[in-house]
Amino acid sequence: MHNDQSLNDSFSKFIQNLPKETQSNAAFYKNYLSLSNIPSDSIQIRSQFFYILKKFIEKSLPIVDLSLPLRQSFFTDQIRIIKSYLLSSTKFQLLAKSLEKTEVEYNGDWNIVNFDIIKANSNSDNSENTMLYQAYQQLHTNAHITFRRSNEQLWHAQYIGMHSTDHGGAYRDSLTRICSDICSLRLSLFILCPNGRTNIGLNRDCWIPNVFSPNKSIPNKYKRQYRFIGQLFGMAIRKKHYLNIKFPILLWKKLLNESITVEDIETVNLERV
């Protein structure tokens, strides 16, 4: 029910308009079958609780550091646990406010990124030929600024030897090709998940970070490329771009510092569970 449009107008008014009788009201909650057999006054009490919770969270968030890892702050951990109970409108407002605060004004300069399509389409095992690496080489130094700019298109894609003029099409095409490189064997950054390699279980088309030796640190060149990919994700969130990246939920939960369950592991590595 937290997607109900009336919640955007007034949560308190929404609560007041709910049925108050002690019996269930299947007719009123016909679109919410899980509520149809619950006494109406109980639903209203729960709604009041969520309203109070919403107000509490809104007042508390300015003093909460959500970048802290798990078990570093009890209060932060509790906020993460209850985030699914927050209204969608509240979440989007918080996201919009965060994006606005970290946005960089467009200064009129264009980043021209030259792509060698022939090299990128070659069968060479050289990862430096890929579209991702070509973009990384030319953008990663200032990606923390460029990818936060307010303009819709963040670079002009120039395809070498093709005499193309980028009015948005080449830019979108370059993003598509970059995503294809991320989920491929042409790079050393990601590998097909175990279920995909053994052709069993779920998520056989999903990719996970490559496994590096625990006795050695990950080479800095790979760390910088991982960071660049993360910046691409941030850019996609800002610009509402769709990136065709096939990562399992386990990886997204890890990025959000959420606990990994046995079920999550099973979705990528059935044989190990």
Rank of each mutant, 00 (worst) to 15 (best):
M1G: 11
M1Q: 05
H2K: 13
Q5G: 08
L7R: 10
N8T: 09
F11N: 01
K13E: 11
N17M: 15
P19N: 07
P19W: 07
E21S: 06
Q23W: 09
A26V: 15
Y29I: 04
K30A: 04
N31Q: 02
Y32I: 06
L33C: 15
L35T: 11
P39W: 04
R46W: 14
Q48V: 06
Y51E: 12
I52K: 03
I57A: 09
E58F: 15
S60W: 02
S60F: 05
P62D: 10
I63A: 03
V64W: 13
D65P: 06
S67N: 01
L68Q: 08
L68K: 11
P69Q: 10
S73W: 15
F74R: 09
T76N: 07
I79P: 13
I82E: 07
I82A: 11
L86R: 10
S89K: 13
S89L: 02
T90Y: 05
T90M: 12
Q93C: 05
L94H: 06
L95P: 09
S98A: 06
S98K: 02
T102N: 15
T102H: 13
E105F: 05
Y106W: 07
G108W: 05
W110E: 07
N111L: 00
F115M: 03
D116S: 04
I117S: 05
I118M: 12
S122N: 14
S124E: 04
S124N: 03
N126M: 06
M131G: 12
L132G: 14
Q134W: 12
Q137E: 12
L139Y: 00
H144F: 05
I145S: 04
I145F: 10
N151M: 01
E152P: 12
E152S: 12
L154W: 00
L154T: 00
L154D: 00
W155Q: 00
Q158M: 13
M162I: 15
M162V: 03
S164R: 02
A170S: 03
R172T: 02
R172C: 03
R172N: 04
S174D: 00
L175F: 07
T176A: 11
R177T: 12
I178H: 02
C179L: 02
D181C: 04
S184L: 05
R186W: 11
R186H: 15
L187H: 06
S188V: 05
L189C: 01
C193F: 02
G196T: 08
R197D: 05
T198I: 01
T198R: 10
N199H: 11
I200G: 03
I200Q: 13
L202P: 04
L202M: 10
C206I: 14
C206E: 14
W207Q: 13
W207R: 04
I208R: 03
P209F: 13
V211K: 08
F212A: 12
F212N: 08
F212S: 02
N215C: 15
S217Q: 14
N220T: 11
K221H: 13
K223D: 07
K223Q: 08
K223V: 12
I229Q: 03
F233N: 13
G234C: 11
K239N: 03
K239M: 02
Y242S: 09
N244P: 11
N244R: 07
I245V: 11
K246Q: 14
K246F: 12
P248D: 10
P248Y: 08
P248F: 15
I249N: 04
L250A: 08
L251R: 14
W252L: 09
K253I: 06
K253H: 09
K254H: 15
L256I: 10
N257V: 03
V262H: 04
E266T: 07
E271M: 07
